[in-house]
Amino acid sequence: MHMHHILVVDDDPTNTKILKFLLTGEGYEVTALTSPVEALRNLGENVYDLIILDIVMPEMDGLELCQRIRATSTTPIIFISALGEIKDKITGLKAGGDDYISKPFDPNELLARTWATLRRTRQLATSESSLKTTDLILDSVEGKVTLVRSGKTVTLTPIEARLLRCLMSNTGRTLTRDTLVIKAWGYEYEGESNHLDVYIKRLRSKIEENPSEPRLLLTSRGVGYKLQPSEVGATSSAQVGS
């Protein structure tokens, strides 16, 4: 059985020891580092199944570290931070995080979210590898989507890939917010509901020619979202709303 390898980055040695103790106790292999710069070097030489990041660190904050990781990797990232306001969580998700846990945290919550994130990543990897619509080609294994019209290929995070797969599998149908949250995060997800809106905005920035005037990923006001073929979306977006 594959032993999941987790990278923990926190400038406080006490925190890294606690996290390593909790995670190794659940059977995970853990590499714990206190330097974001060292973490970047380490990531160039090793492959991880999950990365756990603090945000407030002296050499480089966790948000910048996350963005640098996202430039080359789709490995899921969980933030653990004392910055617990809603705006802080949204900032973390926009930076490329897949989940956000506020300090102080319940050890059981940390372990549950770690397990859930790894499970969702496994499910994505074992799902049908390629999915196509008239506008998009999704490669679930590589975590990339190709825009048919321009030929441009962009990288997706695991959450983005799960959301897009769900939308592409139901092209033309409005999916409720609850349905999309369940597909992306699972039934056990207890984060703020506006996390979905953050990820929809991120998806639009990657698949729309003009994200501020979407023609593919449309909002059904008061209900949810739908992926509309471009030739239809151009005429219906005014009615559906963006």
Rank of each mutant, 00 (worst) to 15 (best):
H2E: 14
M3H: 11
H5I: 00
I6S: 06
I6P: 01
L7N: 07
D10R: 02
T14S: 07
K17Q: 15
L19Q: 03
F21K: 07
T24Y: 04
E26D: 09
V30D: 07
V30S: 03
V30K: 09
T31G: 02
T31M: 09
L33I: 13
E38A: 11
R41Y: 13
R41H: 15
N46M: 10
V47R: 09
V47D: 02
D49M: 00
L50H: 01
P58F: 06
E59N: 06
E64K: 10
E64R: 04
T74M: 14
F79W: 07
I80P: 07
I80L: 08
L83C: 07
T91L: 07
L93E: 03
K94G: 00
G96M: 03
Y100C: 08
K103D: 11
K103S: 13
P104F: 05
D106I: 12
L110I: 12
T114Q: 09
A116V: 02
R119H: 11
L124R: 09
E128F: 02
L131H: 04
K132A: 12
K132H: 10
I137Q: 12
T146M: 13
V148P: 00
V148Y: 00
R149L: 14
E160M: 05
E160W: 10
R162M: 08
C166R: 11
N170R: 07
T176Y: 08
T179I: 08
T179K: 09
K183P: 07
Y187S: 15
Y189D: 15
E192Q: 15
E192R: 14
D197F: 08
V198D: 02
Y199M: 11
K206T: 11
K206Q: 05
I207V: 14
N210I: 15
S212W: 04
S212I: 09
E213A: 14
L216N: 05
L216R: 03
T219V: 05
T219I: 10
S220L: 06
G224W: 06
G224Q: 12
L227I: 03
Q228C: 13
S230Y: 09
E231I: 04
T235F: 13
S237N: 13
